[in-house]
Simulated scan of single mutants.
Amino acid sequence: MHPDQFPDPDAAGLEAGLAAAAELLGGRRIAVLTGAGISTDSGIPDYRGPGSTPRRPMTFDEFMGSAANRSHYWARNQYGWRHLARARPNPGHAALARLEEAGSVTGVVTQNIDRLHQAAGSLNVVDLHGRYTQVGCMRCATRIPRAVLSDLFDRLNPGFYDSISSPDDIDFAPDADAVVPRTAGFRVPDCPVCGGVLKPDVVFFGENAPRHRVLRALRMVGAADALLVVGSSLTVNSGRRFVRHAVRTAVPVVIVNHGRTRGDAAARLKVDASATDFLAGLEQRLARPQDGR
C-alpha cells in the first residue's frame, strides 16, 4: 500500500495534510493511538524523535533479576516520576478530549504512562503501558501510590539527592527514568505486606502489556470507523498491532508523526507534523460541519 503522504513539516504541508485528514476522518468514529510524541510539548521528551537522546531502558528481566539493578532503577525513577508529575496537558491533549466530548473520538489507547490524557479531560482511555502514579508488588499484587513510596525513599536515603543542583542537570525520559550523577547505595524497601519486589505499574521492555488492556484496546479500534495514530514511531509491536488490526478489519489508518514509522505502508494517509499543531487544526476542521447545522 502506498499512503497519501504529506512529508513536509512546514505550514503548507500541515495545511494540506489537515485538509486530507479532515476529508477522510469527517463523519467517522475515530479511535486514537498515541505515543510519546504527543507529550513532547508538555516537556516530556520522546524516545526516537528528532533531538531525543539515545538511551537503553532497563529490561524486565534485568529489573527482576538483580537487587542492584532495582536500586539503580529506583534511584533514577525517584527523579523521573516527579518530572512527569509536574507536566501538564498541552493543546493536543485538550483537543482530543474535546473531540471525544463532541462524539468524533470514541476513545484513546495510549502508550504513554504520563496520565496527561486524563488530566486534559479524556474519559475513555486505555493506559496500555500502565501509569507512573502506581507501584505494585510482584508477589501479592498490593498497589501503593508512587507518592507514598517516594516519601519512604526519602526517609531511607537522606541527603542522597544533594548532588543535584537543578532539574537542568538531569536527562529525563518518557518512562519516568532519569539520568542522574550517582545511584549506588540507594536503599529500596520491599513490599510492606509480603516482602516481595516492588515494581512500577508500567510495562518494561521485554514485558507484555496486560491482556485485559490489550483486549479492551482492540475492541476500541475494532468498533471505530478510523484509527488515528499520533506521535508514535510504531517501533514496538505493542502499538503496531493496532494498525494491523485496523487494516484487517478495513478500518482506514491515519498516521501523524515526525519522521517515518513502521506503520507507514499500512496507512491511508501519513502526515509529518507536530502532534499539537495537527490535533488543534483537526479539531477546528471536524467542528465546521457541526457549526453550520
Rank of each mutant, 00 (worst) to 15 (best):
F242A: 01
V230L: 02
V253C: 00
N157V: 11
Q78I: 11
E62I: 06
D61S: 15
G281T: 08
L18I: 06
Q134N: 15
G35P: 09
L25S: 07
P174N: 10
G121M: 07
D46Q: 04
M58G: 04
S71P: 06
V202K: 06
R213E: 14
S39Q: 07
T40V: 14
V236L: 08
L33S: 10
G195T: 09
G27K: 01
L96K: 02
G185T: 10
M138H: 12
D171F: 11
N208A: 15
P174H: 08
A250N: 12
M64D: 05
K199L: 07
G27Q: 02
P3Y: 02
R213L: 14
G206S: 04
Y47A: 08
P54L: 00
L279Q: 05
N237A: 14
F205M: 09
P200N: 07
A178C: 10
S166G: 09
R187A: 15
A22Y: 05
L279D: 04
A267S: 01
Y161Q: 15
D46T: 05
W81K: 15
G222A: 10
R56W: 04
F204D: 08
R29T: 14
R146L: 09
R241K: 05
F153N: 13
R29D: 14
P174M: 06
A68Y: 05
W74N: 08
R98T: 10
L24P: 03
P289S: 05
V214Y: 08
D127C: 08
Q118P: 02
V254M: 00
E100L: 01
L234H: 00
D169N: 12
D46M: 02
G13L: 07
R48A: 08
P181W: 07
A287I: 05
A67K: 14
W81Y: 15
D190R: 15
V202Q: 07
S42I: 04
A20F: 02
V193W: 14
A36C: 07
D225N: 04
S71F: 01
N237K: 13
D291F: 15
T106I: 13
G49S: 05
A224N: 01
M1L: 14
R216C: 05
F205Y: 12
R288W: 11
L152M: 15
L33F: 11
N90Q: 09
R213V: 07
I164R: 06
N124P: 06
D264K: 00
